[in-house]
Design a protein around this nucleic acid. Structure first.
Length: 458
RNA sequence: GGAGGGAUGGCAGAGCGGACGAUUGCGACGGUCUUGAAAACCGUUGAGGUGCAAGCCUCCGGGGGUUCGAAUCCCCCUCCCUCCGCCA
């Protein structure tokens, strides 16, 4: 792990991989895939990863390097045992005054030490290579996840409240036009402040944005503990959830302080239990958080640049759970149902997609996407992605629980999803509820959050 | 930001170069006693790696160094506490 440590001065060196050397380091040797499973059950791991359409070269490499690493480590340990024995001998001889013999033993120990050093260097190098590979290998998909090559293959599980014939001309106006006309969205000045793909809500637009978060929090407060987490986090925190090392370009970095802006509250919420052993009685543990989210959208520059469809900073309410493996499938259903419930309460048509193996995120075991229909832009907008990570994140983050009666702690399963993401829902609302006179009549569920306003006019 | 003090097993707290993976107390667990419980007494009790196993190895906040040998000595970092400065 020597290469991961801070340099002698402790100052993070700049450069494309500066965070590799930073405070808090990347986590220690914490693979995402169970290395033991790679050893004992290689074929099934390979088959699982193949379903994602993944290249298996890295996995093969891991298997081979691991074999060599273990052999070297065993040899090194044997030499270490000898050194210990010989050193003990030295102590005894010195006490007995047998100086000459002691010196001979010292020489012997010294040469053993050189051999140990060589073996250890080699074994550590291999271990590091294995770790780097393992951190980049994605999660294995659930057997229930549908097969497919990409987003075109995601089955639509259900569509709720959508009637393509039901829309009138006055709803076919993009939210940015209505927003500017009503003075509730000020994109022009947002660009002046922060550049393209930033947004600014004003007046009732801002109240609506905040009200949406409040609504989402209130709807889940029956079972979820509200958390207000930090939104700047260490590299190690971003690694635990899987954003690093592979997706460093997608996040905003505050280099001089080795901090990153969170892309989602999933990041701090998941790390809350990092390096802890939870009581089984406390599971499932449900948490929710409102937070701003920051995304560089590096891979999608130039796409969806108009309006609120894709922005660098937005507000979101995230719901998350730690669960036992047995509880996880039901928890996935619960999170989906909760996210759906909020969309339904807002009266927005939506559909549910079962994400196929080829479109699953790197750390996802199974995912469902929720999309709302926005008539003004005539598109389905992804507003929530609810995912089950199996033990992938828990392994990286070292989150465990002790099954009752068991001696050995096991990794928990993590699940999370957006309860509500503001900009796209805001857009869909403004388009869906636009009246013939250009005002926006908001659904009743929001009224308690709008200070008495029910219709946003000029 | 400056100056001092600290970080050891679930907790408290010893150890300051060799018999220390770590005294002890509390807690927890098992047992004896008891109608039951308490008390008392006896015993067990950190984590991880590797191996069929016996075992061996690693871990005293993290990293590096000195040494035949480091929890113990040296250097760097992080975090916590106290004081000063600054501050929503």
């Amino acid at each position: 792990m020597a290469a991961m440590a801070a340099d002698a001065t402790g100052a993070p060196a700049a450069g494309p991989n500066w965070w590799r050397r930073c405070r808090g380091r990347l986590l220690g040797f914490r693979p995402m895939i169970d290395l033991r499973r790679v050893r004992t059950d290689y074929d099934s791991v390979a088959a699982d990863l193949a379903r994602r359409g993944d290249d298996l070269a890295q996995l093969e490499q891991v298997r081979d390097l691991d074999e060599r690493q273990r052999a070297l480590a065993a040899e090194r340990d044997e030499v270490r045992a000898q050194i210990k024995a010989v050193s003990g001998e030295v102590g005894r001889l010195r006490r007995d005054g047998a100086t000459e013999e002691a010196e001979a033993k010292q020489a012997e120990s010294r040469s053993l030490g050189e051999r140990e050093q060589g073996l250890d260097d080699e074994a550590s190098l291999l271990a590091e290579q294995i770790r780097d590979l393992l951190l980049r290998i994605p999660n294995t998909p659930s057997p229930d996840a549908p097969d497919g090559a990409g987003d075109a293959d995601n089955p639509i599980v259900r569509v709720e409240g959508f009637d393509p014939e039901a829309y009138a001309e006055h709803q076919r106006v993009p939210h940015w036009e209505t927003g500017e006309a009503l003075g509730i969205l000020d994109l022009e000045r947002a660009v002046k402040l922060s550049g393209s793909m930033f947004s600014m809500f004003r007046g009732m637009g801002a109240t609506l944005a905040r009200g949406l978060c409040q609504l989402a929090l209130d709807r889940n407060a029956d079972a979820f503990e509200e958390v207000r987490p930090p939104t700047l986090v260490l590299s190690s925190t971003l690694t635990a959830t899987g954003q690093l090392p592979k997706f460093a370009d997608d996040a905003y970095a505050v280099e001089r302080d080795d901090l990153w802006c969170i892309p989602t509250a999933e990041v701090p919420l998941t790390s809350i239990a990092r390096d802890e052993v939870l009581d089984e009685a406390d599971l499932p543990m449900r948490l929710m958080a409102y937070s701003p989210c920051y995304r560089r959208e590096a891979g999608s520059a130039g796409r969806d640049t108009r309006g609120l469809l894709r922005v660098h900073e937005f507000d979101k309410v995230e719901i998350l759970a730690y669960a036992t493996p047995a509880q996880a499938p039901a928890m996935l259903d619960e999170l989906v149902a909760r996210a759906e419930g909020t969309l339904a309460a807002l009266g927005l048509p939506y559909r549910v997609l079962d994400i196929c193996t080829g479109d699953l995120g790197q750390s996802h075991h199974r995912s469902f996407d929720l999309e709302v229909y926005a008539p003004g832009v005539d598109r389905w907008l992804e507003v929530s992605s609810i995912s089950w990570f199996s033990d992938y994140q828990a392994r990286r983050a070292n989150i465990r629980y002790r099954p009752t009666g068991e001696k050995r702690a096991e990794h928990v399963h993590t699940l999370n999803g957006s309860a509500l993401a503001v900009p796209r829902v805001w857009a869909a609302l403004v388009e869906t509820y636009r009246q013939p006179d250009g005002t926006v009549a908001l659904p009743e569920a929001l009224w308690p959050y709008l200070r008495g306003t029910t219709v946003i006019g000029r």
